[in-house]
Nucleic acid binder design. Sequence first.
DNA 1: TTGTATGCGTTATCAC
DNA 2: GTGATAACGCATACAA
Lengths: 342, 342
Amino acid sequence: MPVTLKDVAAAAGYSVTTTSRALGGYDDVNEQTRERIITVARELGYQPNMLARQLQAQRAETIGLVIPQAAHQPDDDFFSLLMKGISYVASQHQFDLLISSQLTPQDELRAYQRIAGGRRVDGVIVARTMHDDPRIAYLQRNNYPFVVSGRSAPDEPDDFPFVDADSESGIRQVVAHFIDYGHEHIGFISSPPELAYTPYRLAGYQHALADADLPYREDYVAHGDMQQESGQKAAADLLARHPQMTAIVASNDAMAIGAMAAVQAAGKQVGVDMALGGFDDIPLARHITPDLTTVRQPIYRIGELVAEMLIQIINGEPPEQTGILLEPKLIIRASSGQPLAI
Amino acid sequence: MPVTLKDVAAAAGYSVTTTSRALGGYDDVNEQTRERIITVARELGYQPNMLARQLQAQRAETIGLVIPQAAHQPDDDFFSLLMKGISYVASQHQFDLLISSQLTPQDELRAYQRIAGGRRVDGVIVARTMHDDPRIAYLQRNNYPFVVSGRSAPDEPDDFPFVDADSESGIRQVVAHFIDYGHEHIGFISSPPELAYTPYRLAGYQHALADADLPYREDYVAHGDMQQESGQKAAADLLARHPQMTAIVASNDAMAIGAMAAVQAAGKQVGVDMALGGFDDIPLARHITPDLTTVRQPIYRIGELVAEMLIQIINGEPPEQTGILLEPKLIIRASSGQPLAI
DNA sequence: TTGTATGCGTTATCAC
DNA sequence: GTGATAACGCATACAA
């Protein structure tokens, strides 16, 4: 049986109240009394029951994050990085992080209801936003503190705090870079339509083409699920259908790396016969051979920022800037190859 | 203000007790009453307060993991993988995962006291065990359920549940593989002495040498802190002091990858002038060029196993096998180079 | 300076 | 079937 405040009080010969205040550092308790109580508490190995304390304080000193099925892959880097950024900042503010892994989107919403509605956490972080995201609707409706890593789709309101990298600008930069290198037949591996950033990334592709007066061809766009394997499949498909294609940009690095395999399987060489670009700049991007041209999204930093904002909101100090859009940075590497001779 | 059971009871015209049982699915409540209460609860958007429930049940349905400072590096793969394995299994058993990031070893112990002693979690996972690990001592002394990812040092008792890869065998396999390829001057980049597995890995190196009647030279051993950079420094040091060295084995992949840089900086070529081996088989190991010979430790799987064991213990069904030692598997890749001509 | 009483929201006990 | 009461462990008005 655990040692409770009552036990300490009894052993020290004081009331629970005095014991609580002595341990709590209140100055309206006799010095001798305090010392005695502290000594007894130590001897008994007293540890306050955090659940009871949180219930009484109506505050958990904890923030929550629900991990979707899609992030369970051992080689998914995005959530790992985001979580590290979050937990680092949380620890600086003496907050813990409650992780709830869920296997289906429905479970995901229920998990938010359980941990936010159930007061297990003082606020939550929502990542991987979708079209008409029910989680955001739920949190807003109930006035629960939350910050979004990502943002809403272009045709939806974004009246909530968020931190995101500018997807449109990012993809636009990569595509423009390839156009600059003389490519005219550039394929795009898009993200799933239900993800909120998909229209932004696709728009980045379209705008870069338009800027250069190149036609947008719908059949140059393939779709993947953000996993490596799907990138391979999508690239194989594009290559088979369009032999004239000389460059492919993928919505994230994982799919771009999958595309590498497809290019090689097709007997072409990345960086020579085919330029390849991604999005994220995961650690692997600079270690793979050839290393991958991509646009850097500071995921760890985004984790830090969302946690920082969330804790401010929880503490009743709402941040001035509620929507932060970070400009991603083009990182040119070997997968770009050389400018095409014209 | 959140909706409580009391609110639902009042709105439905029943007592809190009946309301609780109606919602809890007890069969000693009138069907009509139940329906009425459920309807009201739904209308009001009632969400049970998990803290109150946990306090009453004396159970949090949550397991805890403390992340040490050393794992905060964005490119540390070990804890990310371990955590994914843990959270996956936890979710299958309807458990959540409480993460507490801590910046110093002292804070780390305090964090375990807070979350385990404070009953925020029903049990904890201890990773990255050290010599005379104070966390294990604390948990054992207080009879808190815990499972260790790793194990105790060779000269210490291991009377607790753990899952670990056999470090001695793993390093032994890599070194033996290089000896088999004809190498006689093999360096070793060791882990920090305070880590519990350090003696095992060093022993693996020594035994492999002894098996082949090769001398063990203390000056062939350098030390790193498991980070990439330290591997680079250690390898540079070994190369400078021992030009005759033709192979280096590092205690983990990160340091081996750091060593790659040092070898190249010294004007030598990995897999040609110098064989290199690691330990872990992190995702990067097979993507880097040249890809890295290593010994595979199934980190994600270890996470699953420790979580599985912990939840069994929490549920009062102690597993039969309390110490699991997994045999790591040698993965030969390009960094091994070719067998030396003799 | 210390103690009594009350409440946080829930479930369990035991009457009615 | 239903409800009053107590309990989980802690903190805080309020009294003394």
